[in-house]
C-alpha cells in the first residue's frame, strides 16, 4: 500500500485557548483532487495553514509523504517544501518583483537551471495561466484576477507534487474561474499532481473534486468525507445537505 501524500491524525486546531476544530482524521491520496469545504469561519484556511506547515497543531500530527514537517530539520523541511506549491487567497505576489521575477525565484532557489532556461520555463508557466507576454509587469499594474493567475504560475513553477489552493476562484470572473478549474484538472491529469483546494464554490467543487471534506462549524469537527455528488445525494447531516444544495431550510 502506498503512503498517502498527506495524512492527518487526531488534529486539534486552536487559536490561543479557542478550539477551532478537533478530531480531524483523514488522508489525501496521491494524484487526487481533495477539496476542503465548509461555511465561512469554519477553519478551512486554518486547516490549510496546518497542512503546509505554517501553523503547528495544538494536538495531533500531520504527515507529508510520511514525514512530519514540523519535526524535521531545516534541510528535510526545505526538501519537503520544494515538493509543494501554494496559491494563497490574495495571490501574495512579491510586489517589488515583476511577474517573471516572481515565477523565476523558486526556480533560482531550487534548481540549477541557467538564466536562459529559467526564462523559458517562466514564459511557459505564464503562458499556461494565460499571461503570455506579461512577464515585465509588476503586480500593482495588473488586475486582481491576473495577479491570482500569476501567483498560480509561481506555485507551479517547480512542477510540485502537491498543490494547495486557498479559495482559488474568489475574485475571479466566471471565465477565469472556469479556466482555473480546467488547469487544476489538467495538472492532475498530466503531471499526476495531488491537489488540495479550500473552497466553498459549489460549481467548482462538483467539477474538480475526487473527494471532499466538510468542516462543520457547529460540531467543530469534520462531518463528511467522500465524493461531493455522493455526499449531496446521501448527506450524512443536515448541515452538509444545506451546504451542497444551497438550501436555507431548517435555519432560523
Amino acid at each position: 500500500m502506498t503512503t498517502p501524500a498527506i495524512e492527518v491524525r487526531n488534529l486539534i486546531m486552536q487559536y490561543g485557548e479557542l478550539v477551532i476544530m478537533r478530531d480531524l482524521n483523514f488522508s489525501i491520496q496521491r494524484g487526487e483532487v481533495f477539496v476542503i469545504m465548509g461555511g465561512s469561519g469554519s477553519g478551512k484556511s486554518t486547516l490549510l495553514k496546518h497542512l503546509i506547515g505554517l501553523k503547528a497543531p495544538a494536538e495531533g500530527t500531520i504527515l507529508f509523504d510520511g514525514e512530519d514537517i514540523l519535526a524535521s530539520d531545516e534541510l528535510q523541511r526545505k526538501a519537503v517544501l520544494r515538493r509543494m506549491g501554494v496559491l494563497y487567497q490574495n495571490g501574495a505576489l512579491w510586489s517589488g518583483l515583476t511577474l517573471a521575477e516572481n515565477v523565476a525565484l523558486p526556480l533560482q532557489e531550487f534548481t540549477t537551471l541557467d538564466a536562459r532556461a529559467i526564462e523559458e520555463v517562466v514564459a511557459l508557466k505564464l503562458a499556461l495561466v494565460g499571461l503570455r507576454g506579461f512577464g515585465e509587469f509588476y503586480p500593482a499594474a495588473i488586475s486582481g484576477g491576473m495577479r491570482k493567475r500569476a501567483a498560480l504560475a509561481r506555485a507551479i513553477a517547480l512542477d510540485p507534487e502537491v498543490l494547495f489552493f486557498d479559495e482559488p476562484s474568489s475574485g475571479l470572473d466566471p471565465i477565469s474561474a472556469s479556466r482555473l478549474d480546467d488547469l487544476i484538472v489538467e495538472l492532475k491529469a498530466s503531471f499526476g499532481t495531488t491537489i488540495v483546494v479550500v473552497t466553498h464554490d459549489l460549481e467548482s467543487i462538483f467539477r474538480i473534486a475526487d473527494r471532499a471534506l466538510f468542516l462543520d462549524i457547529t460540531e467543530k469537527t469534520m462531518t463528511a468525507l467522500g465524493h461531493p455528488a455522493e455526499l449531496r445525494d446521501h448527506p450524512p447531516s443536515d448541515e452538509v445537505h444545506r451546504f451542497l444544495t444551497r438550501s436555507s431550510e431548517g435555519l432560523s
Binding site: 511557459l124 503562458a127 499556461l128 494565460g130 499571461l131 503570455r132 507576454g133 480546467d182 488547469l183 489538467e186 491529469a189 498530466s190
Partner: peptide, 11 residues
C-alpha cells in the same frame, strides 16, 4: 493538452 492550454491565450 498542456501545450494547447499554454497557447490558448495569445501573447
Amino acid at each position: 493538452r498542456l501545450l494547447a492550454l499554454s497557447r490558448a491565450v495569445p501573447e
